[in-house]
């Protein structure tokens, strides 16, 4: 069970959180402007790296806030957590690692 540092509450066990998948995939301002391929890419294609991965978490059984984290998907170690809307201070990996 991971330990996760909620930027609002501090460090709590994973069971208080829910993971929301890859972060920094902004919903297009006008989805209707995207062709089917670009929309499918937005909806379904993920970088899925073995290495540093920016991902979304929500402190579901806590403050209820969404935030982002950078975690190494090979070691499962968190590098940092930060508030939604902010950018990570660590470069993140693509699927290469």
């Amino acid at each position: 069970m991971l330990l996760i540092d909620c930027p609002f509450c501090g460090t709590r066990p994973e069971t208080e959180f829910r993971c929301g998948g890859e972060a920094h995939i902004a919903r297009p301002a006008d989805p209707s402007a995207l062709d089917d391929g670009a929309w499918a890419e937005h909806l379904f294609v993920r970088s899925n790296p073995r290495g540093l991965h920016a991902e979304r978490w929500v402190h579901a059984h806590g403050c209820g806030r969404w935030f982002n984290a950078v975690r190494d998907t090979f070691t499962d170690r968190f590098v940092e957590t930060y508030k939604a809307g902010e950018q990570p201070s660590h470069p993140i990996d693509d699927a290469r690692a």
Binding site: G20, A26, R56, G64, R65, W66
Partner: peptide
């Protein structure tokens, strides 16, 4: 909550 907080804050 997800949309409100992360897409349309």
């Amino acid at each position: 909550e997800d949309y409100l907080q992360t897409e349309w804050p």
